[in-house]
């Protein structure tokens, strides 16, 4: 059994360090991540971010209680290729998770590996009952990804924002412990 709960064959999840600011700054500003950065609400989800602003994000993540924000690191080249968030401040029964993979590393299965690690951690090492997430309705990739991992769409918060002249909604998704266990064949 792999004793490191936060690593798989191709990647590991580790705490962010100050030196990660450059790579985080680079991929957060990638145009394809506009509107889906999953960073603190205090920072813009679509306006270009300065290095100083990204330092502030790392600082906030580092100080956060009842939450974690981990760097996704590729084992092949030891590069930070994304970030994974989890927040159980409202209730440890229902943590909220999110994940961003840098555009150069998308569609290569990294996101699935991260989700599997996090869901396994939450359901085998904490008393979580409902793991929830969400995405904007135009983010079809994220919706398909969540569905693939057993999450169910539980409705939409209307008028979450405005994008290219159109209102969009925010889709809520969640997966219950028994549903995850059934998928795992437990």
């Amino acid at each position: 059994m792999n004793e490191n709960r936060f690593s798989s064959e191709r990647l590991c999840l580790r705490a962010f360090e100050p030196d990660d600011v450059t790579v985080l700054h680079a991929y957060l500003n990638h145009p394809s991540l506009t509107g889906r950065r999953y960073i603190p609400w205090s920072h813009s989800n679509d306006i270009p971010l300065s290095l100083t602003q990204v330092e502030t994000i790392l600082e906030k993540w580092g100080k956060g209680e009842k939450q974690f924000h981990l760097a996704v690191v590729s084992s092949g080249n030891d590069k930070v290729i994304g970030h994974a968030n989890c927040d159980w401040g409202w209730d440890p029964h229902c943590p909220h998770i999110s994940l961003v993979i840098a555009p150069d590393y998308q569609r290569q299965g990294y996101g699935s590996e991260v989700f599997n690690l996090i869901l396994r951690y939450l359901y085998e090492n904490t008393h979580a009952h409902n793991v929830a997430g969400g995405m904007n309705d135009w983010n079809q990739t994220a919706r398909a990804f969540a569905q693939k991992h057993g999450f169910k769409e539980t409705g939409k918060m209307r008028r979450a924002g405005l994008r290219n002249g159109e209102f969009y909604d925010w889709i809520g998704v969640d997966i219950l412990r028994p549903e995850w266990q059934a998928l795992e064949g437990a």
Binding site: D91, H93, C94, H129, N130, A132, K152, T154, G155, K156, M157, R158, R159, W170, I171, G172, D174, L176
Partner: peptide, 25 residues
Amino acid sequence: KVSYRQRESIFKAGKRYDNVNMDML
């Protein structure tokens, strides 16, 4: 109108309930 819910995320009086978000445009 009910917009979305988080299933079984409320525990009250010994029972599980869905957390419900409602909105009005």
